[in-house]
Simulated scan of single mutants.
Amino acid sequence: MTERPQPETVPWWRDSPPSKPRRVAGGIQIHSTRGTIAQTWWSARFIEVLESLGVGGRLARGRSYARAGQIVELRVDAGAAVARVQGSRPEPYRVRVGLTAYGKTEWAAVEQALADDAWYAATLLAGGMPPEIEQLFAALGLALFPASGRDLTMDCSCPDQTVPCKHLAAVFYLLAERFDADPFEVLALRGRDRETLLANLRARRGADDEPAEGTAPGSEAAAPLADRLDDFFTAGPGLADVGRIGSAPAPPDALLDQVPTFVMQIRGHRLVDLLRPAYRALDEPG
């Protein structure tokens, strides 16, 4: 009896043939159509970790997914970025990128260090991330950015056994663009959202400015305002350099990235995409 030849199988270590994803109406689409996606040094940190894992064609397919708007939703909370990514199956895949969130004790130390130098908060509010903030975290025995894939947990409900898969890669690229527009989202992953962090910094700086015990407010000797007009409105140490923090300014259409997704489209185009050229034109000289 002649044995029937067995069908060839694809070895498990090779990438599976790319499948065609289902198109998404109104998906979240990154704006970079070619070249580097991360425009700032802080968002590039996450892309460096992804690219260091060496996952072959999945990175290219992940970029294609992100550019095609295959990500249905993305939510950044303390300790995790959770998304739904539409693949070739009817149900979108559930994707999670996890990063350790610090607790109250760690954040109390970070907030006090930030409050001691108002330049940090001012730089963040100006849309930048001062490079010195890495040293600030390191001095407290903490890390702001993941150093390698071991610092992250990555999960996807797709059948691909390789981590990260193309769906995880797509979420990484979208996160990088989100971080470009709002550096506070990096801090949110570590456990502090913008509103809580700024409120705590104001409270700590207010406590530092309170008069000493036994001194009535306003009773300290102070020079009359008329005698201090030359220096009363000076920026102070560090604040004058906020405009020169070495990072790319926020693009003129960054505000549109914060607008909730509209289901309604105009002649097949999303509303934010129709408004984007107008926002960019307003920033052009002359």
Rank of each mutant, 00 (worst) to 15 (best):
E3H: 07
E3T: 10
R4H: 02
P5L: 11
Q6C: 00
V10G: 05
W12L: 14
W13S: 06
R14Q: 13
K20L: 13
P21Q: 09
I37Q: 07
W41P: 11
S43V: 06
A44L: 03
R45C: 06
R45S: 06
G56H: 14
G57M: 09
L59I: 15
L59H: 11
A60E: 15
A60G: 10
R61M: 07
I71H: 01
E73D: 14
L74I: 15
A83S: 12
R84Y: 05
G87I: 01
P92Y: 08
Y93H: 08
Y93A: 14
R94N: 07
R94V: 01
V95I: 15
V97D: 03
G98N: 09
G98H: 04
G98Q: 14
A101W: 10
K104Y: 00
A108K: 04
E111D: 08
A113E: 11
Y120G: 07
G127Y: 01
E134D: 13
F145N: 08
A147F: 01
R150Y: 11
T153N: 02
D155W: 11
S157T: 13
Q161M: 12
L168K: 08
V171S: 03
E177V: 05
P183K: 03
L189I: 09
L198M: 13
R202Q: 14
D209M: 11
G218A: 08
G218C: 09
S219N: 05
S219Y: 01
D231C: 06
D231A: 06
F233L: 14
F233V: 04
A235S: 06
A235E: 08
A235T: 06
G238W: 00
D241G: 04
S247R: 06
P251R: 12
D253V: 07
A254F: 08
R270G: 09
L271C: 00
R276Q: 08
R276C: 00
P277Q: 03
Y279D: 02
